[in-house]
Amino acid sequence: METTAEIKQEVQPPQVVQQNILKIADLDIEILPTIYEIIRCVEKDPAENRNSSAECSQKILELKKRFDLARSQIKQLTGIDFNKEEQLQKREQLKSQLKLKQELIAKYKNKQF
C-alpha cells in the first residue's frame, strides 16, 4: 500500500501542470443575442437614435471578439481531441489493459512457490 501512495504522488504532478484546461461549464459562447442586437440596432430609425451607427460598430466589434473568444475557449477544452467513438474505444482499451495488468499482478502475488 505504501508503494501505491508513493506512485500516486509521482503521478499527480503532471495533472497540476495542466492549468490551462477549461471546463464546458465555464464556457461563455452566446452569439445569437449579440447578432439580434446588431440587427435591431441597424433597423432602428436614424431619426430616433443619432448614435446608432457608433453603437452598431461597437456591437459588431463585440461580436467579433465573441467569435475569437469562442475559438480560444474551444481550443482550451479538454477531452475533445477525438470524436466520441474513438474516445469510447480508447476508454475500453484502457479498461481491458487495466484488468489484464491487475490479473497479472494478482496471479504473481497470490502464487505459492
Binding site: I24, A25, G79, I80, F82, Q87
Partner: peptide, 8 residues
C-alpha cells in the same frame, strides 16, 4: 463535448 469531458 460535455459528455466527452466526463469520459475523459
Amino acid at each position: 463535448a460535455a459528455e466527452q469531458e466526463t469520459v475523459e
